[in-house]
Design a protein around this nucleic acid. Sequence first.
RNA 1: GGCACCGUCGCCAAGUGGUAAGGCCGAGGUCUGCAAAAUCUCUACCGGCGGUUCGAAUCCGCCCGGUGCCUCCA
Length: 479
Amino acid sequence: MSLKLFNTMSGKKEEFIPQKEKQVGMYVCGVTVYDYCHVGHARAAIVFDTLYRYLQYLGNDVCFIRNFTDIDDKIINRANEEGIDWQEVNRKYIEAFHQDMGKLNIASPTEEPKATDHIPQMLEMIQSLVDQDKAYESGGDVFYSIKSFKDYGCLSGKNIDDLQSGARVEVNDTKKDPLDFALWKKSKPGEPSWESPWGPGRPGWHIECSAMSKKYLGDTFDIHGGGKDLVFPHHENEIAQSCGCTGKQPVRYWVHNGFVNIDKEKMSKSLGNFFTLRDVYKKYHPEVLRLFLISSQYRSPIDFSKKNLEDATKVMTRFYEGLAGANEKLKDLDTNSISDFQDKVKEHTLTKGFKTAMNDDLNTAVVMAQLNEGLRNINSALNNEDGLEDFAVYTHAWINVGKVIGLFSRTPEQFETELFAIKNKNLNLDVKKIEQLIANRNAARRSKNWAEADRCRDELTAMGVLTEDTANSTEWKIK
RNA sequence: GGCACCGUCGCCAAGUGGUAAGGCCGAGGUCUGCAAAAUCUCUACCGGCGGUUCGAAUCCGCCCGGUGCCUCCA
């Protein structure tokens, strides 16, 4: 039983075997930092965070690199729009990235390199390509000559003739071939620029990933990830550059995540149908978003909708309530007193089932089903007096499964509090009044004045409050 | 136009050769003063038509419907 990953290059699920045993090099395309992240960015981040966590769980030492693209037309435009320095734009949106992704429990990669910190490495690669006649200078720009790379199109399954007949490539007289792409762009006056053998300019988009992955992970590394939209041209161009430069295939497994859709259409900036994470967090808990985004397999498209997020909220709430119940039941148990506790957890059928699902190209949808079944078993056992040790093993196995896929990042109390704050934002409930009504109702219940008790509850219901009577108290929450 | 992918219960979503996981919603039972929560039970022959096979949601062909990439994009 071993991990299989769908490799875009072969179009098949392949057994994942790292170059060096138990050591994995993984590079994932991050974001261009000129705006707040949206749900699509979150999906990519979550998918590769989940892969990162799982690889580590399997005992690998993972060197995980996720870059920031911090120089680009959009950044320069944004700087002009906001009347601030382009580096200020970067600073602002990198900080926002960390805030917004942090709420999703995205672990920090090993390194988060920025393009502009690697200009020398990029220049070196470009020079090498020019020296090999695989790139040429033209009026201060430097282009990669795709004709020099016979395998161009191998990742995306395109052939050069089809691409040209598509006629959607930029018309540019300075290029020898319309499909050639920029390695180095001559800077316009007033734009940020770096010195180069071809005059002042800035790097093209694709070269940064080739240069940084090479620097941090070597000429050939294990996994390169990103959204499906990066397959062509970005990753195709990366292959061309890196192969051209080193003569080696840079990547052994190409992994791409599917899109987040709105009404079956790709969420994108250009269509304007995107939701920033900041907007989403106003209505839904970040962990709910994470759960939603891993509730289908990472390569499938996933439709972002109110209904789906509400469903996910219900599931996440049930998980945490079950967890709270289990914690309560286990609070006096010292798991260290259970012999071979960790081994029992590790060898539990729940854990094994989880690995089987994850090994099949990270089938987190199946893991969700397993967590739901696990929850049902936990809830069933909650009022059961015996088998506490077995229950502890089971519960810990269940929690571990959730944690490996990045769930249960809060305590049940934290989750409840945070969820309450989100739900209460629009309701603005008067907590004192609610507690008074509950006290009144319980007084009525004690004197068996059911009519009055029901009247109090109806009033609460009308406010959007749900009551749950327990043995000697009444819990309440927002519906 | 070229190249991919997708179409499974009302909704979401696994399953890729042996008679359909899970979640939401719905119906009924247990529990409860009644509820709620929890739990139990019930609810699909898999877009259509052919073909291969002892056997297909799963393979092949055609058709219908949808999406993506071919320009920046996670």
